[in-house]
Write a protein that binds this DNA or RNA. Structure first.
Lengths: 213, 213
DNA sequence: GTTGAAATTAGTACGAA
DNA sequence: TTCGTACTAATTTCAAC
């Protein structure tokens, strides 16, 4: 039902961290992942053909990727609107320090939470919830989250539209985007003042896009 | 590579909207989705057994769910750290009104973007990116996003840890959480001041959890 | 909506390159 | 390692109930 997933170690960049433990991923492994993220139910035989290796090899690599953990699981993407959970919201949570364990434990008891990440910045965590109506969001925030001592404050935002959702990003995508990257002149930074990445004041002229709460 | 997905219509709650078009989802359909989101590669035969229906019935329903769009696709969940994309960041974007089309078009050209949602609140959109190191985030924001005229401002936040990621939330989960919901007293709102859901000031005593930019 | 049997396909094992 | 083949087991299809 729930799953602990890899720590990022956002300081990263330097040490290889957990990378390299287990098998080395070559180009063919990446190709396999590429196919599998688009069609998780493809047969290994068809996979072998699309990647250009023998069936036996495909079975070996497929199993290796699974055993190594590079492939964590296979899943079905579901249309939430069709299943009656058409409302999606993001709740930014400020957590009392040293009460993280409790916060995590409570999260596990909330099935409407699809995703939770610990973030830098103004808040400590972001959770994404899927519910049937806007009232359920309010209930969730005021009744359930508010009852967790670890939660100091929240800020809720509704998702109006999910524009893009890629199955899973892979490094090989970068290569395909190489040409897309060649644009007028990289030096010309346009008219957008983005020197610092954080806390660029961004509250102006967006009176629209606001229909709730 | 990219996929347009369902509009939420956050006003929701009232009209059934797109729900009901196509097939009615009964309890068994939900059970099927439940199994499939956890194990997208299970055989239909095994699925039938776990759900408690005949194989022929399972095939019929499986195909119906696929055709109807309730199941959008099957995908493999990949360990990003193992594939070399260990850094995850959220970029909140303020978009110039009436330049949304351009913004979306540019998004499609950025393979490092895994997710993009249009939100209410302080910003207009949130995008999630996966890259190999923190420098790549900076490059992405200053070189690529800054060059899009539609982008007025951005605010970047790093994800330090992904605590929870459910394959896909279903309404049936709510039922299982019914008992979890029974807690001391729902009226006792604890010590958290959460009357309004939005813009509860949340900048205090979180000096830690900050290692970047 | 179910069961059971045929046809097809998937998964395994092993020797050769 | 990877490939090709033969073998075994399982799945999917299609029929009748």
């Amino acid at each position: 039902m729930m799953s602990e997933i890899s720590r990022n170690g956002a300081t990263g960049g330097g040490q290889p961290g957990r990378i390299g433990i287990g098998l080395e991923l070559d180009e063919i492994h990446m190709k396999i992942l590429e196919v599998l993220r688009e069609n998780g139910r493809i047969s290994v035989a068809a996979l072998a053909e699309r990647v250009g290796i023998s069936r036996a090899n495909a079975y070996t690599r497929f199993e290796a990727l699974r055993a190594d953990g590079a492939i964590k699981r296979f899943t079905a993407e579901i249309d939430h609107v069709r299943t009656g959970l058409g409302i999606t919201a993001l709740i930014f949570v400020t957590v009392r320090q040293q009460m993280w364990k409790q916060f995590r434990a409570e999260l596990a008891r909330m099935p409407e939470v699809e995703y939770c990440a610990i973030t830098t910045g103004q808040h400590d965590a972001m959770i994404q919830v899927r519910v049937s109506d806007v009232a359920a969001v309010h209930t969730m925030v005021t009744d359930r989250l508010a009852n967790i001592p670890a939660v100091k404050a929240t800020e809720t935002v509704f998702i109006l539209d999910e524009v893009l959702k890629r199955p899973y990003v892979l490094p090989s995508d970068r290569d395909q985007a190489a040409r897309a990257q060649r644009r007028p002149t990289p030096e010309t930074q346009g008219d957008v003042p983005l020197g610092k990445m954080r806390f660029v004041g961004a509250a102006e002229g967006r009176a629209a896009l606001r229909k709730d709460t």
